[in-house]
Design a protein around this nucleic acid. Structure first.
Lengths: 195, 195
DNA sequence: GTCTATACGGCGATAGAC
DNA sequence: GTCTATCGCCGTATAGAC
């Protein structure tokens, strides 16, 4: 792997796990197996590394959503189910998810504007993708057409975020069942009334 | 206000808004209007300030929940509705909520064990309080008795957390409507089938 | 592009006078 | 309990040889 690639990967892991301030250039350098000053041959500052990591994560996130949501072989509720399940199970220890959800909520002051712009772009794109699939769900009778797309979208994303970042206060067994419990309530909440 | 009280309040605001690492003893001292070394007459370290803030927030959180949940004048769904609404609207800029939700998910390494213990205690207490009210909701026909308490609890808390901490990517108007949209889906998801 | 050496600043924390 | 002065450390970042 190229040195620059390695810097991105290791930095993302540290930023996601420990946060921006708690991640030092020394930690990154050690993980990449070079000396600290060598980092500055690739990036002019710690902020610049962060921005590069962020841009890459945004691209990957959208690419992932597109590939999952545009599967016309599957029924809509199956797609939404599988996506939520993946998020809730894989996310513990998933470096990309850790990173994505952390900086959606908590931005270092000096990077706040930059970060918020990127998330706004990303969430707007995600919204369009979801509008399409929700519309399909309504047409095919899986989702109650009385509900607005915004309703489905808001609720689904709140649950998704929650599942992705909730720490396990209650232990492993509880957490494994959490997705199924939550999914049932969501599914009851959006199904057509007459079914 | 006593100096020590003031330290707690200002520290909580900074810790909640900017995070533990991004909050310096100088910032706290300036906000309290004393010099930095004077802080050490009240606390022996930054970690100690944090622990005191955390303990206090936990107590307040549980006290708040108790007072809201044990209102037998109100119907169960009304209580759950009002609590979620308060969280979703007041929480933007509510220093206590900012603090509580931030450290539930992200702990500085050196304080991790201490923080997790406190949250586990707090969440276990919250769970008992919710079990009671959910049982009441089932008895009084507002909640489908087919669903487990864990289901209601998990889903409700995921939504609550989400509403409390979601940043406004979409602007003010969108955010104001978010609570109502989410509440309807939740309410449809847990109501008895025959109603 | 990588290294050794180093600058400079802010951090948490302490000493000791008042 | 509050202050001024200061310590030691580690952070980001740079200079300059190879």
């Amino acid at each position: 792997m190229e040195t620059k690639e390695s810097i991105i990967v290791e930095s993302r892991n540290f930023f996601g796990t420990f946060g921006y301030e708690a991640t030092s250039m020394s930690m990154i350098a050690e993980a990449v197996a070079i000396k600290k000053p060598s980092l500055y041959s690739h990036y002019k500052s710690k902020e610049d590394i962060f921005k590069d990591v962020l841009d890459k994560e945004m691209q990957d996130y959208i690419a992932h959503l597109k590939s999952v949501l545009n599967d016309n072989q599957k029924r809509v509720m199956e797609i939404l189910h599988d996506l939520m399940k993946t998020m809730s199970l894989d996310s513990t220890g998933d470096a990309s998810a850790d990173f994505y959800y952390r900086y959606a909520r908590y931005q270092p002051q000096e990077l706040k504007d930059y970060i918020m712009e990127r998330y706004t772009e990303s969430e707007n794109t995600a919204r369009v993708l979801f509008d399409d699939i929700i519309e399909r769900g309504k047409r095919e009778g899986e989702i109650d057409a009385e509900l607005s797309n915004a309703q489905i979208y808001s609720t689904y994303f709140l649950l998704l975020d929650g599942l992705a970042v909730t720490p396990d206060f209650y232990g492993k067994t509880y957490q494994e069942g959490e997705f199924d419990r939550v999914w049932e309530v969501f599914q009851r909440g959006i199904r057509p009334a007459s079914v």
